[in-house]
Design a binder for these strands. Structure first.
Lengths: 160, 160
DNA sequence: CTGACAATTGACACATCATCTCATGTGAAG
DNA sequence: CTTCACATGAGATGATGTGTCAATTGTCAG
């Protein structure tokens, strides 16, 4: 069975809800996935990132810092990690999909157009509005995406 | 000169703020763009769409229903139309960019995952929150994107 | 009306991102 | 240790998008 939701035990990365590689590995085994060398390398590389990253970036990173994982394997593993909540797949300011560590509880971020940093926030102003709109438009709401774009302090300073 | 904002005169399509081909052509000429046969065909094809469409779909549509416009021309013209507010470029439920008729006043949409229809809405619950988050995170807000995903009535009915 | 010039076109090359296939490799259960 | 289903990864394929440049064409001045 093991259908329970996995809660990461350690948050020593300082990020709320962040998984350690061990947590991620445990979560994968828990779901019946085999633990292979490429997967370990990809998990390590993914959780090593400090900023949102594209799948293609991780292909390159895993190639240099780990033992050459194939593109297919990287894409597949990222997909699995996203499905487990270890990573979330969000959109950057250009609408391109990027991965970021952490569970996609809300997919709400402040996204810096300069450096790509996505600062998550929990306040959700959408709930009531979504319910109202759903009623008015005969629409069944499944989820929502709120991304606030702009420039972080560091990037504004660098621009000067 | 002619820096005034163009307001579409006709809304007979029934959609709020929709441009007619004539409006779109006038807006382009107004900005100094030349009116060519391919552009007329692309405008007509774009405004004929009843649902959000990708650039590639319009390449195909313009090829069959109009006189074969090149891919480059279609992409360039859609970009111009988006810059004029005739179309907006939004993201579908998969994060892929699609075009939809109308000005992107807020980029707020109810997006149906089934048929891709994007129902725009104007209520914006983000303003105060964005200001607060900006202050707390030393972040300069440039804009935001709010997309509520789900299923429209027609698609729910079709599913049954 | 007509010529001239600059905007525009579109075929094509190229780049990026992502998915699929399938022969080969390997983790892990027994 | 054997077995086999799961996993890998090289390469093909395809979708999307950008850049180039010679040929074409809209528009304006005269």
């Amino acid at each position: 069975m093991a259908t329970e939701t996995r809660i990461p035990q350690s948050t020593r990365g300082g990020r709320t809800g962040a998984y350690s590689p061990q947590d991620a590995i445990a979560a994968m085994i828990d779901r019946g996935y085999r633990m292979t060398a490429p997967r370990r390398a990809i998990i390590a590389a993914a959780l090593r990132q400090e900023r949102p990253f594209t799948a293609e970036q991780l292909v390159a990173d895993a190639a240099t810092n780990a033992g050459e994982s194939g593109r297919s394997t990287v894409y597949r593993t990222l997909e699995i990690l996203a499905s487990l909540g270890v990573l979330s797949r969000i959109l950057d300011a250009s609408g391109r999909p990027v991965y970021v560590a952490g569970a996609p509880i809300h997919r709400h971020h402040l996204v810096c157009a300069g450096c790509g940093t996505a600062i998550p926030f929990n306040a959700c102003p959408v709930g009531d509005l979504a319910a109202t709109l759903a009623r008015e438009n005969d629409f069944e709401v499944h989820g929502h995406l709120l991304e606030i774009f702009g420039a972080c302090g560091a990037c504004r300073a660098a621009a000067r």
